[in-house]
Design a protein around this nucleic acid. Structure first.
Lengths: 334, 334
DNA sequence: CTGAAAGCGCTTACAG
DNA sequence: CTGAAAGCGCTTACAG
């Protein structure tokens, strides 16, 4: 095991005090003689010194840890966001503690408490669920950035897309393609993201004078969006009432619908066009028939870090809406 | 922000010393009077005390942090392992620091150094790459569990499957199905897992007297296994030399091959059967044509924690080979 | 330009 | 049954 090398070890070897070593380690080299700096650096190298972060955290009263709580890492979109956040945090000098809440309120609270005990510098909540603990810490003003789903029990900094605009874009696409019977599928327990997308979709159609009864709003049950789509499609794909086109609020819902379509020998996209608001890279490989309004997951990390920084510097909670990409709508197989 | 409540706060409120509070917090209640315990517990509750982990780590000389370095969280199998590890560690009282090394040696080393500075209690390396830093810490005897890929620069505890046996099982399956022209696709830069699977597959066929020249060993280039499969399939799918069946060392390779097949209007599995060694849950949804030898990712977490524990208790590095499931081979569409 | 000293919050022998 | 004290490794005013 790595022997523990402390400031004192380095100081002894370099023949200086720990204060001096500490300053040099922290980059305060200008008020030390070049000779001392060199000697100390040599000693650091020689003994393989790395600052003990526990000591530093204790003294400074804060760690470099940031807690990222994700609802479900088995969801590729969530995993991609988590990964891009982790990368951006590392580049900014922070260390990511990742927690998978499995979309469960108690687990989320358990993590919130544990992370507080770690004195984390901030929280990133990817698809947060409502919970007493969340309410408490968000009211206390803990530094939290909400991702994809807005704070379900209050307000706060947010990183995501303009969900209503994305829904409206899908509506425009379907209208342009001449579809007549439209549906939208979302999970029964709707997050702010889901409801925003559905609402934007429906509102745009109503605005254009569509009769409400040709817009099917189907909701699905299930632990995963895969299941949600599969469940909803069972009610959607009934003879004589097939929709021409379906908006799926996520890629995984589209996968679930497609599975049901296969089982019922329906052809996607010939019998029914599917469009999602998501567009994860994986879809291009496993679901070439899926058209998507793309969410720029790759840049989430940077925005999330920017959000944390703005909170740390005392600015008001910001709302960062990233631009969606509609190019993939016009290409593809459909 | 959460005010910092320390042992001293609790002690003052309960009218006892910090020593007493500390003992009670740590469950050493038997040598304290019931009245005191009750008073302290009330005080803890009242002020919302949670032990500062930095203080505890500093004093104890070790944290409850465990570093999990994964090569690529965008790979669903890796994300699933990471998530199951995180869950198992939490249940065992540890906190997971997750790092995505993007399969890059320098990044892996950067993380290794940073995690050492955090005084993590152990490392979990999912698909480790060879790097100088890894060589150093593994030689120093740091507590490391290698997952899926064995230590590329030495030895150490391992959690994974019997790769050769899995390859052999695929061979048996193809033979039983009466296929004549067989192929196996793996990444060019092979990990211990890939090469083991390929070797086991080929060895079993040679054992049974197959001529070596009807076994195609194709390797693909690419950052992801998706790309690897897509690349390899370009050379595999040539008129007049089509294989009857292809073993893919991962699901993602199969997805890549399937994409190429679609582009060339080949029917999977009618023109060519695909079998993978992986069997992630997602495949059942997006690739129903894929048969798999299933790796039990769900139980990896528990085994990894068991591996860490055995290292901590001073036992010799263990090799934990989890049972593969072959049931999915005989079902499915193919 | 450099060092002695205090103190962050915790745990743990030790004394009583 | 309980408390005073030391010390984990660090940073930072303060003194020189």
């Amino acid at each position: 095991m790595p022997e523990d090398v402390s400031l004192a070890t380095v100081a002894a070897r370099a023949g200086v005090s720990v204060s001096t070593v500490s300053r040099i380690v922290n980059g305060e080299t200008r008020r030390a003689s070049p000779a001392t700096v060199a000697r100390v650096r040599e000693a650091i190298e020689a003994v393989g010194y790395w600052p003990n972060q526990a000591g530093r955290a204790l003294r400074r009263g804060e760690s470099q840890l940031v807690a990222v709580l994700a609802a479900n890492l088995d969801n590729p979109a969530m995993a991609t966001i988590a990964s891009s956040t982790e990368t951006a945090l590392r580049e900014a000098g922070y260390v990511t503690i990742l927690c998978d809440t499995h979309d469960r309120a108690e687990l989320q609270d358990e993590y919130l408490v544990a992370m507080r005990a770690q004195r984390v510098r901030g929280f990133v909540l990817i698809a947060a669920v409502a919970s007493p603990g969340l309410k408490e810490i968000s009211e206390q003003g803990a530094p939290i950035v909400f991702v994809n789903r807005r704070n379900p029990v209050g307000s706060g900094a947010f990183v995501g897309i303009d969900d209503r605009a994305a829904g409206a874009a899908a509506a425009d696409h379907f209208v342009a393609r001449g579809h007549r019977r439209l549906a939208v599928v979302s999970p029964r327990e709707g997050s702010s993201a889901s409801t925003g997308r559905v609402d934007g979709f429906v509102a745009r159609l109503l605005d254009q004078g569509w009769p409400g009864d040709v817009i099917i709003r189907e909701q699905g049950e299930g632990l995963s969006h895969l299941q949600v789509g599969y469940d909803a499609a069972a009610r959607l794909f009934v003879a004589g009432a097939m929709p021409d086109a379906v908006l799926c609020v996520s890629d995984q819902i589209a996968y679930g619908i497609a599975r049901r379509a296969r089982e019922q020998s329906l052809a996607i996209p010939d019998d029914c066009e599917l469009v999602s608001i998501d567009g994860t890279p994986l879809s291009r490989w496993v679901a070439p028939w899926l058209k998507s309004i793309e969410i720029p997951y790759g840049v989430y990390g940077a925005e999330i870090v920017a959000g944390l920084r703005s909170i740390w510097s005392g600015e008001a909670a910001s709302e960062r809406l990233l631009p969606i990409r509609r190019e993939a709508l016009s290409s593809g197989t459909g």
